[in-house]
Amino acid sequence: MSTAAEPARPDLVRPELVCPAGTPAALKSAVEAGADCVYVGFRDETNARNFPGLNFSRKELDEGIAFAHAHGAKVLVAINTFPRAGQPELWHRAVDDAAAMGADALILADIGLVDYAARRHPQARLHLSVQAAASNPEAIRFYAERFGVQRVVLPRVLTVQEIAALNAKIRPVETEVFVFGGLCVMAEGRCALSSYATGQSPNVNGVCSPAAHVRYVEQAGGITSQLGGFTINRFGPGEPAGYPTLCKGRFVADGKASYLFEEPTSLNTLGMLPDLIRAGVTAFKIEGRQRGRAYVAAVVQAFRAGVDAVLAGRPVPDLDLDRITEGGRQTTGAYEKAWR
């Protein structure tokens, strides 16, 4: 981590800031706060944030792309669930429409869908979603060489050192890494915990720990959060409460109750930006299409300032993002080996 002032760094590649938008209002907030790219999804099961009341109609996306382009920002469209067998049309139409609307890239996870996009829209820029969990050079080359995928969003399983080594091996394929937000502790796209408890999963339905299966039960002096009828956590009076995301619950194993998988915590790599930039990462992604405009504006501003500071050779400003992190806690996650 660099703390002392450094000279401006023309040697460093300026990473794109890729920011979430669940609604047109959030898209505007992100662009105005300094996003280079905004990523969005259609209002259906074709994307991994298929949350109630969220996402874009065709008309909204069309207008969103026009707005972003008018302000010099790109729009990336996530079509990153796995098409349901027998009904690929919904996913194919999403690919066709996004390409026709002039999306700057399609973010895909399913091999069959990547194949479809590459054949039907050879001009379209393809990104590999984190949901594809391509965690090594061999997997990344598979998507790059066979389908022309130009950028891979890395699963949140690698350390900064591993990312640097990976980048050296896969050039010119670009990498994008998550820098802030809700953290998956399992390899993304390879987790069926949610459907085990609720019948709905990220891969199939685009939802994890879906709200329809969530109950908060208020008891004397606290709240119990449940998912699919399973108790995920219990909070005392005044204790910060979290949404019952399955892998961030408190469970009993080996005779004791603990946050077995992960504490309710948010990824925050603000202090690590210099290392991630030096590792040769092309784009920094902020998680949170399901979060509100206020979140988007605050986080995008912070990371805009952070990235610009590193490129100017200045230290990363110490910005307080505590208020919008889960349970008020933060982690650098898998980027540091000790996390494992």
């Binding site: 399992m186 390879r190 069926a192 077995l260 996390w339």
Partner: peptide
């Protein structure tokens, strides 16, 4: 059923050990 795979080891974590 195998439901999920991770870089983190939960057997070690449950016993306050690092994966290494």
């Amino acid at each position: 059923l195998p439901l999920a795979i991770s870089a983190r080891c939960y057997a070690a974590r449950a016993r306050n050990l690092a994966k290494d």
